[in-house]
Computed example of a mutant assay.
Amino acid sequence: MDETEYKSFLYIYSHLKDILSERERFILDSIYGVSGEFLNDTQVAKILNISNSRVGQIRRKAERKLGKKLLELYDEVI
């Protein structure tokens, strides 16, 4: 992902992240470097005191929620 794509992602994400739970937001913010620092699943798992696989599960669920919302918004436009 180049810088322009990343900025586009951050813009869209900032407008949609309210649909996520606090934990989902923390995980995506950490993994995608929203706060400026990129963490991997292991680092996030350690902070939250959960397993790496659980971080992956929560991450995928959050990404599906965002994708579903984007599709809903897209359907409203066309």
Rank of each mutant, 00 (worst) to 15 (best):
K65Q: 09
G33H: 06
D29S: 03
I27R: 00
S30P: 03
S51V: 15
I58L: 12
K68N: 11
K61Y: 10
K65F: 10
S51F: 05
L39R: 09
I27A: 00
L48F: 05
R54K: 11
S35M: 12
N40Y: 04
G33P: 13
F26Y: 10
S53K: 11
E63R: 06
D41C: 12
K46C: 08
R54W: 13
A45Q: 03
E63M: 11
I50L: 05
R54M: 13
I47P: 04
N52C: 11
V55Y: 00
V34W: 12
S30K: 03
S30Q: 04
E63W: 09
I50P: 01
A45W: 00
L66V: 11
R59C: 07
Q43M: 14
I50A: 01
I27W: 03
N52S: 06
E37C: 14
K69Y: 06
K69W: 08
N52I: 12
F38V: 15
E63K: 09
Q43R: 14
F26S: 03
S53I: 14
S35E: 11
V34N: 10
R59W: 15
I50K: 03
N40D: 04
N49C: 13
L39Q: 14
F26E: 02
N40P: 02
G67V: 02
S30A: 12
L28M: 04
L39F: 10
V55I: 07
R60Q: 15
Q57S: 12
R59T: 13
L66E: 00
G33R: 05
I50T: 03
S35L: 13
Q57Y: 11
I58P: 01
Q43Y: 15
S30L: 05
